[in-house]
Amino acid sequence: MFKIVKRQEMSDGNVILNEIEAPRIAKKAKPGQFVIMKANEEGERIPLTMADTDPEKGTITVIYMVVGKSTALFKSLKESDGYQDIIGPLGKPTHLEKLGTVVCVGGGTGIAVLHPITRGLKEVGNRVISILGARSKDLLILEDHMRAVSDELHITTDDGSYGRKGFVTDALKDVLEKEDVKLVVAIGPVPMMKFVSKLTEQYNAPTMVSLNPIMVDGTGMCGGCRVTVGGETRFACVDGPEFDGHKVDYDELMKRLQAYCEDEKRCHEDYCRMQGI
């Protein structure tokens, strides 16, 4: 069993942080890599990109939003409960290099994945400008963490309740106009990554996105996570999860993410009814 040593509810209570004992993974993991987690015997294998690792303590941290039965089950786990299975670290680590000015754009729980990458980019000597987006102020996560590893931080909310009213792309456009941006890292909902990539293409700013498609094994064995990148089929689990944002077929990815939506809805509703949620 992989024990939860710290559990925290974030955002509107629907985003959960778990710090989990997984010494082997903590020792080996690098920014950008993911794990596959399974709560119990009947559970589903869920891929989550790590938000942090502590090799000395032997723990990893994941932050996820409750969207269906499996994440609702994860949410029900308390401190000192545990996950039956955690597999990792999987996927290729982020390539961290000193380039000059880089922009890190995060939306929703994507900010959790973005944080260790931002920290890594800062540590190798880049000037880091971060842009965080949320629907409203209370849904924004990890603002302080991101501020600590950024030279400049911009916040946008859809409803204008905090920072600038609008989308991350509005703030990003201003930065791209002013700065010589060597790299944009965008992690968040697929539509966000799509529109960020569209924008940065106009400015010829190299862009990297981190994808989280449906997968089973996470080791290149099933091909469920296939995405089209530059017209070629790639497996996000072993060839990614990070890809050139300008080459990803986002429309296909969005459709593929809906593959089991009816099943997931039914399963989640059954669970909520049984749990009285």
């Binding site: 559970g43 589903e44 294998r45 039965k69 089973v216 089991y260 099943d263 997931e264 039914r266 399963c267």
Partner: peptide, 18 residues
Amino acid sequence: LTRANLMKAYRFPEVDTP
């Protein structure tokens, strides 16, 4: 086959893998 055999998805929604 992995969904059916390893994850026992033929028992969905009793198990969580579709």
